[in-house]
Amino acid sequence: MPSETPQAEVGPTGCPHRSGPHSAKGSLEKGSPEDKEAKEPLWIRPDAPSRCTWQLGRPASESPHHHTAPAKSPKILPDILKKIGDTPMVRINKIGKKFGLKCELLAKCEFFNAGGSVKDRISLRMIEDAERDGTLKPGDTIIEPTSGNTGIGLALAAAVRGYRCIIVMPEKMSSEKVDVLRALGAEIVRTPTNARFDSPESHVGVAWRLKNEIPNSHILDQYRNASNPLAHYDTTADEILQQCDGKLDMLVASVGTGGTITGIARKLKEKCPGCRIIGVDPEGSILAEPEELNQTEQTTYEVEGIGYDFIPTVLDRTVVDKWFKSNDEEAFTFARMLIAQEGLLCGGSAGSTVAVAVKAAQELQEGQRCVVILPDSVRNYMTKFLSDRWMLQKGFLKEEDLTEKKPWWWHLRVQELGLSAPLTVLPTITCGHTIEILREKGFDQAPVVDEAGVILGMVTLGNMLSSLLAGKVQPSDQVGKVIYKQFKQIRLTDTLGRLSHILEMDHFALVV
């Protein structure tokens, strides 16, 4: 994948999101292997301009796509893939009243899908469409860049269908997702969380590099694949309309690839034109409109599966009536509230959605109805927002919020430890010299600072030695090549209790 991002070429006709291997024109390309080798690009942008032909009021008969309808489940399912879809609609009884809503608040519980998330729908649909058009064949390999849930859905379907599955996901995604993927037989590649989507090191860039190296491999490409919004247009939206008897006044959905909100909203605009569509985008993402909503100094966020630093091709923002931004604290607070007060075992993005819903639905009156999409299960986040310690460490809970008995030293300040200034190293000294210094002084790690004293990161003896043994660096290389740029900081005025929580999850903390 090139470091400079080429513009994806656009073909003359058809839909841009065809499933299957992508040609340089962004659509299915038939021909000899030699032709494909000559024409197939190194990668295709996940934010390529959409060429979708959908228009409100256009006859369904003019759609270029294969459409399906929700099917009634048999008493005995032939395999677990038949437990994807037909998820329950559940009334939220307490939270709406707590925040003064007059309307009825309903939750579409997508964590009841077989793999635990709304992404099971698009995973199965992308595979079925690729099999139907002859792209996927027995023994082929599926590769997908994902925040985890699409990966789980694909790995689940691949396990049943017999495909090899490789999932490329950023490091910030939970260990629970990784464990589930491994249990399903998927191979996992992790990428830096802070890598831009168009960087060769991003999950998108690495996935395309693997595709170019592995024979008979395919990126189904949830960011561009029409099967993504079509899955929701054909099934999720129809289920909502049936469950609500066609009567709903507002739908609120958090947005990642945009397939969920695009597919549902398009069908609702056709069948229930008075329904307002509300999009939820986390602070630090750029999906919301108008652009002024996205202006923030924050560039990272903890909530998973929603928000991006690019506009995915499948996201149709014209069908969203209003956007709201959400933050991590309210997302996790509301997710825990949904679990504790409503018994809905949902993930953090569901918290984002409901946090926005109780604001947006203030305009609705008694007798009206708001539906929220709860995308995934708490299963993926047992060591994250479900953990009091994690919430404390991230600053989303305060010590006084917890009532468990603490040891005698818990409320003492870090400054009472009488710490001395640490050994520091410059980023320009060599790895070999740094190892000598650390061994001589008896230290395992040291902060790396520039000549102005600005902290650049941390270097550890173990990481340097393993990097040297693996051949990633040489003793003569500058130590700046092996620094940890993500590390926890703590102030002298913070409590030892807070430091204790940090050290339970990290090997060190830097006192500043």
Rank of each mutant, 00 (worst) to 15 (best):
P2N: 15
P2T: 12
S3T: 09
E4S: 11
T5Y: 12
Q7G: 08
Q7I: 05
G11Q: 02
P12L: 04
G14C: 02
S19R: 07
S19E: 02
P21I: 04
H22Y: 08
H22M: 02
S23V: 02
S23G: 02
S23T: 02
K25S: 09
G26V: 14
L28R: 04
K30E: 15
G31C: 15
G31E: 11
S32R: 10
P33V: 10
E34R: 02
K36A: 10
R45A: 10
D47G: 08
R51S: 12
P59R: 02
A60D: 05
P64I: 14
P64V: 02
H65W: 04
H66F: 10
H67D: 02
A71G: 12
K72L: 14
S73L: 10
S73D: 02
I76P: 10
L77F: 13
K82N: 13
K83F: 09
I95C: 09
G96T: 02
G96L: 02
K98F: 04
F99C: 11
G100R: 02
K102G: 02
L105C: 07
A107T: 06
A107V: 15
K108W: 02
F111G: 06
F112G: 02
K119V: 02
R121Q: 02
R121Y: 06
R121P: 07
I122E: 04
R125V: 04
E128L: 11
E131V: 10
D133V: 15
G134V: 02
T135N: 11
K137L: 13
P138I: 07
D140I: 05
I143Y: 07
T146L: 10
T146A: 05
T146Q: 11
S147Y: 07
G148V: 07
N149I: 09
G153M: 08
A155I: 02
A159V: 13
V160G: 13
Y163R: 06
Y163G: 02
R164C: 11
C165R: 06
E171I: 08
K172L: 02
S174A: 07
E176S: 08
V178D: 11
D179F: 02
L181K: 05
A186K: 02
A186V: 07
E187T: 15
P192R: 10
T193Y: 08
N194L: 08
R196H: 02
S199V: 02
H203F: 06
V204D: 02
V204T: 11
R209M: 08
K211M: 12
E213C: 08
H218P: 04
H218Y: 09
L220M: 02
D221C: 06
D221S: 02
Y223Q: 15
Y223S: 04
R224P: 10
N225D: 02
H232L: 02
D234C: 02
T235P: 02
T235F: 12
T235W: 08
T236H: 02
T236S: 02
D238I: 08
L241W: 10
L241V: 11
Q242M: 14
Q243R: 11
C244L: 05
D245Q: 09
G246R: 12
K247W: 09
K247I: 13
D249C: 05
A253F: 06
S254M: 05
T257D: 02
G258S: 12
G259Y: 06
I261H: 08
T262V: 09
E270R: 08
K271F: 13
G274L: 08
G274W: 11
G274E: 02
C275T: 05
R276E: 02
